[in-house]
Computed example of a mutant assay.
Amino acid sequence: MTGPRIAFLHTGAVVIAPVMDLARELLPDATAINYLDDKIVADLADPARAASVPDRVAGLVEAARTAGADVVMLTCSSISHLAAPTGDRVGVPVLRIDEAMADQAVGLGGRIAVLATLPTTCAPTTALIRERAEAAGAAPTITSEVIDGAFAAVAGGDRATHDRLVGAAIERVAAEADVVVLAQASMAGAAEAVQVGVPVLTSLAPGIGRLREVVAGVRP
């Protein structure tokens, strides 16, 4: 029997390499297919184009299904709310890479601080944590912040400034939180450079770990 085929739908190229590294580590028998629409995040902020995003996501998931994917994972928090409706629409399981991270955050304490570099990612991540908290019967206090200037820096190729701004924000909010959640996978590198007294969560490792569990159930 051949290994599972899994598809990843990305909104930024920067996340493809780390996702592939983890997929090779945790799902060594799987064949991975990557799909990229690097205008989705920008278009979500444009009222004239935002309405096109659900159909574009569904089109990419349909392409993955046609290519034989057993499971599709959305790697961007900005579109994670589309996972369930798109899966129902296309007829293939569609997972959110940040759901496992949200579950971890809910289990770690009553004060959760969410950091993002884009408003289009901050709001969906906060909403996801609230959803998972409600499912777990918890009622944490959730604060959120968009780090000014960080996205512009990395978009302009200045990763060092991005990491410095994100690192400073982590250190600041950690003083009044039980856990810090980084809403974008692209922020993970900045977290490695700081030491704080609370967990700092990113989506990639727990997300791919959950994908492995789902794949095992889909293909026994």
Rank of each mutant, 00 (worst) to 15 (best):
residue 150 A to D: 10
residue 216 A to R: 15
residue 46 D to L: 04
residue 32 A to I: 11
residue 68 G to L: 08
residue 74 L to V: 02
residue 36 L to F: 07
residue 132 R to I: 01
residue 192 E to K: 13
residue 59 G to L: 04
residue 73 M to A: 10
residue 93 P to I: 15
residue 6 I to A: 05
residue 32 A to Q: 05
residue 207 G to Y: 09
residue 141 T to A: 13
residue 139 A to V: 08
residue 195 Q to E: 15
residue 186 S to F: 08
residue 9 L to T: 11
residue 45 A to Q: 08
residue 6 I to S: 03
residue 39 K to Y: 10
residue 44 L to S: 00
residue 187 M to F: 13
residue 76 C to S: 15
residue 154 V to C: 04
residue 98 D to S: 08
residue 143 T to C: 03
residue 77 S to E: 05
residue 27 L to T: 02
residue 23 A to R: 01
residue 172 R to D: 15
residue 101 M to F: 05
residue 1 M to Y: 11
residue 75 T to H: 04
residue 165 L to H: 01
residue 157 G to F: 05
residue 162 H to V: 01
residue 133 A to V: 13
residue 108 L to N: 01
residue 185 A to F: 15
residue 197 G to S: 07
residue 138 A to P: 05
residue 85 P to M: 12
residue 187 M to D: 09
residue 99 E to H: 03
residue 117 T to V: 14
residue 80 S to M: 10
residue 134 E to L: 11
residue 180 V to F: 09
residue 18 P to F: 05
residue 40 I to W: 07
residue 142 I to M: 06
residue 185 A to G: 15
residue 116 A to R: 10
residue 45 A to H: 03
residue 217 G to W: 01
residue 188 A to S: 03
residue 213 E to H: 10
residue 150 A to P: 09
residue 60 L to H: 11
residue 151 F to Y: 11
residue 158 D to T: 12
residue 216 A to I: 06
residue 68 G to R: 06
residue 27 L to R: 03
residue 171 E to Y: 00
residue 146 V to S: 12
residue 69 A to H: 12
residue 207 G to W: 01
residue 28 P to A: 08
residue 16 I to T: 13
residue 69 A to Y: 04
residue 85 P to I: 14
residue 115 L to F: 10
residue 112 I to Y: 01
residue 191 A to N: 03
